[in-house]
Design a binder for these strands. Structure first.
Length: 861
RNA sequence: GCCGGGAUGGCGGAACUGGUAGACGCACCGGACUCAAAAUCCGGCGGUGGCGACAUCGUGAGGGUUCGAUUCCCUCUCCCGGCACCA
């Protein structure tokens, strides 16, 4: 056996071996339990980043673990290959997005292979390939037929200089990122998917997802945002049509002191005619951003329209305002304002001197305090005429009945969730398969003409969609009348691509159907793993898309992902210098030396190249802008894939953020060397004898118990808790025990042989290359990746005595050793006899004796 | 602003169902080996007091429940993720 641990050689050997054996190619085998382990596929940005390495290492550990547990495991991989960065790269370097994307895929695929992930590469999916996205188009046409897809206008960010639609991330402080021009809101026709038709189902089914983190279910529940309320019509003076509003607080109706409508609302538009001030204000509302965060954080402003609504209960005249925080897209584009019981309305009323009229009092009968803020809790009605004295539920019912009887209002369920706008005015995406004909209008592309292929040779220049300038793409015949027509140039949101790729892995290569019977074998995904940043949108869209496929008879599956693991982000330190004048410069932590005092505490940091100090910017996500990324490739070349994988899994539990640490990587590498050395030392003394459990001495029995205790712990940590860091810590502890054990007798060596075999087996999912080699060195002719996970020996786990800690009044005062399974009375006697325990009891009688069997006793005096 | 999450030694983290706070690793300190260094091995390592046995304080801040709270409840601070065209 090689004495030195040489990862480059070991890893290449192992990978060659798996490749030659076709170890990770899988087929559908109904005789074995299946396990579909899926990691979120990467966007091919150029190189893998540490987040990918973390994600795919978690997936690979589970894949290899479940394989050892006897499952038929599928771990596929693919590319989320459409998207904005390819267009940005095209603009920067003049390369077509297609070439850039395919080159990146080639490089990143090599990186993934070098990390030793057990991927079924024969099922690879690339979303920018026509053989993939034709099925986006095909399903879109089915949705159009069923009315799930429809056309209406939507608001986008418009850069007036570049004459182009901007993504939210391309709008910086309200200005276009390239032109610096003030961005305008613009309404354009777009295609939407009726995800709101599925809102109730998507909400209810969250309850059937016990394998999802509670926080993700909560976030989705809040995102869907079901609310029950009343839709109420207010008469408007001098207008034929009433003003409809939706409220979840009908009990506060008599507290309405003004109404607010969106800038785009017909009432506001009409009032603005001939009123320049109002026109200016409405134009200003058009200029704010379109994101919810921007709308919620901006200053709440408004202007009276000079018209009045009639309160449906009191008959009072109520002024109607236009306000920048009311959105035409939400509900009816108008709200009733109750400043006494809604904080936002309260602030608005204070600002503009509007009346604040309390109509709800706390249940204790006190008067609501509306001086410092709104009273927003439920309570009892006052100042509400014949509704006085009612509580929330009663008031809700009473008002509902009142309006239903009059036909001027009704109960309504409202959703925060909005329909999914899938149109993008961009080139590098899946073409929406529609044709515009001057005589026949919008026509779907017939199925036999699919796919509508995206030309791969265009280069965007930032001024609009290049598809709109490509005659060869645009020109087509109308499928209905045969006359000249033009193709739709909008492409689909890339969330469409990622909403069903997990079905396609299981139906790879089928050019006649979107999914086939292989999907019925593999779906649903047993374990999905990806970043927490996808907790809402991607996961919700996938759940929706799966339901549409179910309704079209394409699958029986309703929920695509049975278990979900959301991994935390990978962080690193941030170092920078900010000269008195000039731009801030970030330095890569690899180029910075940290200075510590003699206790190891940090006292400063200097740039290695010039020895001058740099400032610490704390810890942040690895990013280009902060220049704090670590290249996985350099890591693998220096330490090997196993060390990289071991560090990633050891440094933090998977759901938490992970802080990068070069020293931590060194530590992981040292452990690999120690492991290698321990096996080398053991093996170089010749083969071990068979283990005779009955012949072991005390020290050997203790080591053997530690081996089996570790096995139990690692099995639950990997298999149930998914806390790989504690599993690895337990194995490190065992390795320390093995290294301290120096019994070279035949039975001593037999115990060590069993211990080392166990270590190699349980570490195989984490550091598969080294373990692959070590398994052979330990005398096996089998291939480790096909071995079964070991079973603990119950008899090895038995203990004769246990240590019980003894507290007096909850404070630790002593320890007693008692026979395992001893009665409480035995423990009590031993505990009370302990001198230190007696000292702290100060001769007082025992008031209470709490005993946690085998662990702890608390004497209360 | 709203929704979700987090905060434990010098650092990353552990404590699984309310029961020994600090496992494991890193950094640091001391020692062995070495002409020396690196590597490796051994030992120490939350603060304070004590020669020591041990005591005492200590899990972001403040309060509460409990025999017992890092864990449960309330209030607050800071950090991170998402907010519908980044993926």
């Amino acid at each position: 056996m090689q004495e030195r641990y040489e990862p480059a050689v070991i890893e290449a050997d192992a990978q060659r071996d798996w490749e030659a054996r076709g170890t990770f190619r899988v087929s559908e085998d109904p005789s074995r339990p299946k396990y579909y382990c899926l990691c979120m596929f990467p966007y091919p940005s150029g190189r893998l980043h540490m987040g990918h390495v973390r994600n795919y290492t978690i997936g690979d550990v589970l894949t290899r673990y479940m394989r050892m547990q006897g499952h038929n495991v599928l771990q596929p991989m693919g590319w989320d290959a459409f998207g904005l960065p390819a267009e940005n790269a095209a603009m920067a370097h003049g390369v077509p997005p297609a070439k850039w994307t395919y080159d990146n895929i080639d490089y990143m695929k090599r990186q993934l292979k070098s990390l030793g992930f057990g991927i079924a590469w024969d099922r690879e999916v690339t979303t920018c390939r026509p053989e993939y996205y034709r099925w986006n188009q095909w399903l879109f046409l089915r949705m159009l037929e069923k009315g799930i897809a429809y056309r209406r206008t939507g608001v986008v960010n418009w850069d007036p200089v570049d004459q182009t639609v901007l993504a939210n991330e391309q709008v910086i402080d309200g200005r276009g990122w390239r032109t610096g021009a003030l961005v305008e809101k613009r309404e354009i026709p777009m295609y939407y998917l009726r995800i709101t038709d599925y809102a109730q189902d998507l909400l209810d089914a969250l309850g059937s997802l016990p394998g999802w983190p509670e926080r993700v279910r909560l976030m989705q529940e809040n995102w869907i945002g079901r609310s029950e309320g009343l839709e109420i019509e207010f008469e408007v003076e001098g207008a034929a049509e009433p003003l409809a509003i939706y409220t979840t607080r009908p009990d506060t109706l008599c507290g309405v002191t003004y109404m607010a409508v969106a800038a785009e609302h017909p009432l506001a538009q009409r009032a603005a005619v001939g009123n320049p001030d109002l026109q200016a204000f409405i134009a200003e509302c058009q200029r704010s951003g379109v994101t919810e965060a921007a709308l919620e954080t901006m200053e709440k402003r408004g202007m009276p329209l000079g018209i009045h609504a009639i309160h449906p209960i009191t008959g009072e005249r109520v002024p109607v305002w236009v306000a920048n925080f009311v959105l035409m897209g939400y509900g009816t584009g108008a709200v009733m304002a109750v400043p006494a019981h809604d904080q936002r309305d309260w602030e608005f009323a204070r600002r503009y001197g509007l009346r604040i009229h309390p109509v709800v009092q706390p249940l204790d009968g006190s008067l609501p305090d509306i001086e410092s803020g709104a009273f927003t809790e439920h309570g009892r009605l006052i100042n509400s005429g014949r509704f006085d004295g009612l509580e929330f539920d009663e008031a809700f019912d009473a008002y509902a009945k009142f309006f239903e009887a009059q036909g001027t209002g009704k109960r309504r369920v409202n959703w925060r969730l909005r329909d999914w706008g899938i149109s993008r005015q961009r080139y590098w995406g899946c073409p929406i398969p529609l044709i515009h004909c001057a005589t026949c209008g919008v026509q779907p592309v017939p199925d036999d003409q699919l796919p509508v292929v995206l030309p791969e040779d265009l280069v965007p220049d930032g001024s609009g969609n290049p598809l709109g300038k490509s005659e060869s793409f645009l020109k087509c015949a109308c499928p209905k009348c045969g006359g000249p027509a033009r193709r739709e140039t909008d492409t689909m949101d890339t969330f469409v691509d990622s909403s069903w790729y997990f079905f396609r892995y299981a139906s790879a290569g089928n050019d006649r159907a979107m999914v086939d019977e292989r999907a019925a074998y593999w779906l649903p995904v047993d374990q999905y793993i990806g970043g927490i940043e996808h907790a809402i949108l991607h996961l919700l869209y996938s759940r929706f898309w799966t339901r549409v496929m179910r309704d079209l008879g394409l699958t029986q599956v309703e929920e695509p992902f049975t278990n979900l693991l959301t991994q935390g982000m990978v962080l690193n330190e941030v170092f920078f210098r900010k000269p008195a004048s000039g731009r801030i410069t970030y330095y890569n932590p690899a180029d910075v030396d940290v200075q510590v005092d003699d206790k190891g505490a940090r006292i400063g940091a200097v740039l290695r190249s010039d020895g001058e100090p740099v400032e610490s910017g704390g810890i942040g996500t690895m990013s280009k802008s902060k220049n704090n990324g670590v290249d996985p490739q350099a890591l693998v070349e220096r330490y090997g894939a196993d060390t990289a994988r071991l560090f990633m899994m050891f440094a933090a539990p998977p759901e938490q953020t992970l802080e990068w640490s070069d020293e931590g990587v060194d530590g992981a590498f040292r452990f690999m060397k120690r492991l290698w050395k321990a096996v080398h030392q053991h093996v170089s003394a010749g083969p071990a004898q068979a283990l005779d459990v009955a012949a072991l001495d005390e020290a050997s029995r203790t080591l053997r118990r530690q081996v089996h205790e570790t096995l139990v712990k690692v099995t639950t940590d990997i298999g149930k808790r998914r806390t790989f860091n504690t599993a690895i810590a337990a194995v490190m502890e065992l390795m320390n025990a093995i290294n301290r054990f120096d019994d070279r007798s035949p039975q001593g060596r037999a115990v060590v042989q069993e211990a080392l075999e166990t270590v190699v087996l349980v570490l195989a999912p984490v550091v598969p290359h080294a373990c692959h080699a070590l398994w052979r060195e330990l005398g096996h002719t089998t291939v480790l990746v096909d071995e079964r996970w070991p079973e603990p020996d119950a008899r090895a786990l038995e203990r004769a005595t246990v240590e019980v800690v003894v507290q007096v009044n909850g404070k630790l005062r002593g320890r007693v050793t008692v026979p395992a399974g001893a009665d409480e009375s035995v423990v009590r006697e031993a505990a009370l006899a302990d001198p230190n325990v007696q000292r702290f009891m100060e001769g007082k009688p025992v008031r209470k004796f709490v005993y946690v069997p085998g662990k702890l006793a608390n004497v209360v005096v």
